[in-house]
């Protein structure tokens, strides 16, 4: 692979991720509106929000760490996208593997923690400590699931996992071969989206959107962009591990939208768990399914 080709892929992959993520944010809000029997926002609403936030005329910045940390967080999610193989574009997925990806997924939360710490807002500090707690809650089941998938396929390389799943059509998909593992992974992916009932660190009525409490203008815009990337990343990661990845965009896009749609359709009827309950619930159920799936993989 020559350098120009790689460069084009590195530009194209985050761009596609952003555009698909915008549609996912729109879907998120439309689904919520339809469940509440509202009409919901217009088609370009996510774009309007981001442009508006970046074009605010005054900004409040809480020091250099605030700004650097937001860039760290955004850089983390963008770096995550180039390790996620999509149809036709492998990016760096052949050079890095699942382990690198899992490491990169933690960078946004850590970057956010640094930035929120500079804001010195108590709601923000509570929010970020809850966000890191939530990360502990879903990362342990996720790591077990990833370990199970890697054991099952005998590799941690994402393109090889996709190739193994696509070898025999739908019957070799991870969700058919390792259904228990896939269930644990779906719950962990749900928690990664940070929607109710796992919305402990946003909690608008309680801690005033937690980490976002001091974010205005371009910082909030950065968070909106990050949300697009994160929705997309969750969809693609789950599709890659369990739904056979994608050979063509026409079959790949419905899969990633379906993965994101399942949590979004459920989330609107839930209130919010307490922080310690999220930890207990995730370790008990998501962790339980993941461990059972891992045991099944090992016994096979």
């Amino acid at each position: 692979m020559d350098f120009t080709h790689l460069f084009v892929e590195l530009v194209l992959m985050p761009l596609i991720a952003f555009l698909v993520g915008l549609v996912m944010v729109l879907m998120l809000r439309k689904v919520r509106a339809k469940i509440e029997r509202r009409i919901g926002p217009p088609l370009l609403q996510p774009l309007y929000d981001i442009v508006k936030l970046y074009s605010k005329k005054t900004q409040v910045s809480h020091g250099p760490m605030h700004e650097i940390a937001m860039m760290v967080a955004l850089g983390g999610v963008i770096a995550m996208e180039v390790f996620l193989p999509v149809p036709g574009l492998n990016g760096l997925a052949e050079k890095g593997d699942l382990i690198v990806l899992i490491y990169l997924m933690m960078i946004p939360s850590l970057g956010l923690a640094l930035g929120v710490g500079a804001c010195a807002n108590p709601n923000g500090s509570i929010g970020i400590s809850r966000a890191l707690t939530a990360m502990v809650a879903y990362d342990i089941p996720l790591m077990i699931v990833v370990a199970g998938v890697a054991l099952f396929h005998g590799t941690t390389s994402l393109p090889e996992i996709i190739a193994a799943q696509q070898a025999g059509g739908m019957s070799t998909w991870g969700i058919v071969q390792t259904p228990v593992l896939a269930l644990g992974g779906l719950i962990a992916a749900y928690a990664m989206l940070g929607k109710e009932p796992f919305e402990i660190y946003v909690a608008p009525a309680e801690i005033a959107t937690g980490p976002m409490v001091e974010m205005s203008g371009k910082f909030m815009g950065t968070l909106f962009v990050m949300q697009c990337f994160q929705l997309y990343a969750v969809g693609v990661l789950y599709t890659t591990l369990f739904l056979g990845g994608g050979e063509y965009w026409i079959s790949f896009l419905p899969k990633i939208f379906a993965v994101v749609f399942i949590p979004l359709a459920m989330t609107n009827v839930f209130p919010r768990y307490k922080t310690e309950d999220v930890l207990k619930w995730m370790w008990k159920w998501a962790g339980g399914f993941a461990l059972a799936g891992l045991a099944l993989v090992v016994m096979k």
């Binding site: 919901g40 217009p42 005033a208 409490v213 205005s216």
Partner: peptide, 12 residues
């Protein structure tokens, strides 16, 4: 929300 308005909880 039809016209793009959302409630927000902090003045920032």
């Amino acid at each position: 929300e039809r016209v793009g308005m959302q409630p927000m909880v902090t003045p920032r």
